[in-house]
Design a protein around this nucleic acid. Sequence first.
DNA 1: AACGATACTGGTAACGTTTCCGGAACTTGC
DNA 2: GCAAGTTCCGGAAACGTTACCAGTATCGTT
Lengths: 361, 361
Amino acid sequence: MICLSDIRRFLENSKRNTKINMTNIKVVARHCGVAVSTVSRVLNNHPDVSEDTREKVLRAVAELHYIPNTSARNLVRTTSDTIALLVKGVNNPFFSKLIKIIEREITQSGYTLELHQMDTSEDELRVGAQLTNERKLIGILFLGGRFNYSPEELSLIKVPSVFCTYTNSFGTLGADCYSSVAIDDKNAARFAVDTLVSLGHRRIAILTDNQDDHSISELRFQGYQDALKSHNIPYDPSLVACTGTFSDMRAIYRATSELMERDNSFTAIFAIADLMAVAAIKALSDHGRRVPEDCSIVAIDGLEISEYLLPTLTTLVQPVEDMGLACAKILIELIESRGTHRQVTFQTLLREGGSVRRLNT
Amino acid sequence: MICLSDIRRFLENSKRNTKINMTNIKVVARHCGVAVSTVSRVLNNHPDVSEDTREKVLRAVAELHYIPNTSARNLVRTTSDTIALLVKGVNNPFFSKLIKIIEREITQSGYTLELHQMDTSEDELRVGAQLTNERKLIGILFLGGRFNYSPEELSLIKVPSVFCTYTNSFGTLGADCYSSVAIDDKNAARFAVDTLVSLGHRRIAILTDNQDDHSISELRFQGYQDALKSHNIPYDPSLVACTGTFSDMRAIYRATSELMERDNSFTAIFAIADLMAVAAIKALSDHGRRVPEDCSIVAIDGLEISEYLLPTLTTLVQPVEDMGLACAKILIELIESRGTHRQVTFQTLLREGGSVRRLNT
DNA sequence: AACGATACTGGTAACGTTTCCGGAACTTGC
DNA sequence: GCAAGTTCCGGAAACGTTACCAGTATCGTT
C-alpha cells in the first residue's frame, strides 16, 4: 500500500536534484554524514555534541560557505534579531551622534538596527506597536518626542523599549513600567540661567521650541522660569521666542529676529539647544548686536562643533557617549531579561566658551 | 489502519488549543470559512478571487487584527523587504541629511531600512556580501568610502546596489555594472580654487582628508592641482594639510595649526568639506588670523549651518535632496527591475558667503 | 552479567506563509 | 444538450530552520 509519507518522500527526492546550488542546512548535513539536527546543534552551540562531530560540521560549513537563513530561524523561534530605532529628527546632530554610538553597541551585541524616522506629529507608540507586530521586533528605542503617555498607551508596546531624551516628569507612569535615558533638563536650564544671572544679567530671553508640548522643551522652559523666580526676576512673556522646531535654522533665525523687534531690552539669551544659539548669534549679528559684547548666550547640548565657532559656545554638555551606551545597555538587558526597567538621568556639565560676558553696568 | 496523516492531524488539533491567541492566516481562514490559500490571495491582491470573498476576508482580517508574519513570507519567497544602508561616518552632517531623505523614500516605497555603520578601514563590499547572505537583503546603499573596486570585488555583491558619493573616476569598471550618485568632485574643487584665484589669491592652501585614498578626497585634491596648473601657479606640497578625517574637529584643527607653523604664507584655504572650514577658521583665529580679512576660505558641502556662521561660509553646495532622491530611486528601480545601472553626477552651485575677500595687493 | 545512567545522534513536527495543481461550479458555443 | 472554457476555490507541498522525543552506544555500578 502506498502511504502518504512515501509519496512525500518521492516528491522530496525529485525536487532535490533541481536545487543543488542552494546550500542549506540539509546540504551541510549530507556533506558530512550527520543529521540536520546535529548541524543545528553545532551552529547554536548546544552542549550535547562530541568534539569530533563539531569539528567535522564546522569544516563542512566553512567549505560550503554555508550561512543560516535568518527568516527560517526567526520563523521557528517566533522572534527576530532586529531592534528598531524610532527617531524624530535624524539630522539633529545630537541625535546622529547618539545613533552612531547606539548602532555600534547594538551591532556588537549581535543584533540588527532598523531605522525609522517619524514626523513630530506622528504617534510614536502606535507606530512602534504596528512595527512590532509586522516585523517581530525584539526591542524599540525611541529617540525624541513627547512624553505624557498614559499607562494604556504605553501598554501598546509589547516588547522591551527604552525612551531616550524623555523623562517622566509629568508623572503619569510608575518607575517599574518604562525605561528611559535623559539629562536633568529642568536642572540644566536652571543652571544655564543661573550662569547668566551670576554675570549680572536680568533681562534674559529664552529661545525654545515650544512651551507646552510635554517634551524636553517644556522642561527646559520650566527650568528657565524656576531660575528667574529664585532670583526674584519677574517672568516676562515678551522675552520668550518660540521656534516650533529644533533644527530648522531659518525658523530659529526668524524667531530671534521677531524677538528683537518685539523687545530688544534683553542682555542675554538662553537657547535650549546649541543649533538654536548658532542661528540666534547670526540673527543678532545681522541686527548689529555682537556676541558676547552686546548679548550673552548660553545653550544646552555641547555639540562638538560648538567648540569651534566664533565665539565658542558656552553650553551645558550632554554626555552623549554615556547616554548612547546607557540606551543600548538597558535595552539589551531587558531583551535578554537580565535586567529590569530603570530610568537613568545624567547631569550636564558647563563648558565655558566665549559667548558670555559679565554685564557692564 | 492508522495512517501517518491521521497522527499528524491529531497532533495538530491537540496543539490548536494551546495557541489560541496567535492570529495567523489559518485563524483568519477558519473565521470566515475559506481556505488559507484564499486569504493569502486576497492579501496579495491576486486576481482569481470573487468580490464577495475578498470583502469577507478583509473584514475578518480587520476584526481579528491580523498582521502577516514577515519571516514566514520571506522564507517562502526567499527574499525580504529590507535594504541595508552601509555608511562610513553616520554623524557626518551631510550624510545624516542624506540618510533622512533616503529613509523617507525607502519607507514610502514599502521597504525597510537597516543601518550599518562601518569604520573607514573596513571593506564595505565584503561586509555587504556577508549581510546579503545572512539576512536576505534585497538591496544595498553604500555611503562614503573608497572606490577603486575591481570587477571581481564588485561581483561579490549579488543584489542591486547604489554607491553614493562615489564616482568611478579611477576607471576600473564599465558603466553597465554599477550605479552611483555623486557630484563632480574634481570640477567642484577646481571651481573653488578658481574662485579664490579670481580674487587675487595665489598662495592657496588645501585642507583635505587624504591625497591618495581613491575616494572623493583624492578627486578634490586633483581638482585643486588642476586649477593651480591652469593658472600657472606652482603646486607647493608645503601648503597641503592632511587631516586623515572628515569629521574629527580636533584633528582638523591640529592639521591647520601645523600648516600655519610650517608655512604661513598662504592667503587662502580651500577646505574640501564645510566642517573642515569651520575648524580651520577657529585655528586661524586662535593664531590671530581673521577670516576673511587675513585669509579667505572656500569649502565644499553647503551644509545648512554654514549659512549661519560668522562669517558665513562660501561653499559649493551639494544638492543633497536631489542626491538622496536619486539614490533611493535608482535602487528601487533596480530592485523592481524597472531600471538599469546608471551613474548620476550632480553639479554643485557656489553659495557666496562672507569667508572670502579680494586680496589687497 | 545485568542494569541504569550518560553522552550523543537521528528523525521529524512545527513555525506561518505562498504557490502550484486540480477540481467544482458555472458559462459559452455549437 | 454536450464539450470546452472560465472563474473561483481548496488542499497540500515547500521554504530552512529549531526543538522535541526517542533511540543507540558506551560506560560505570552493583
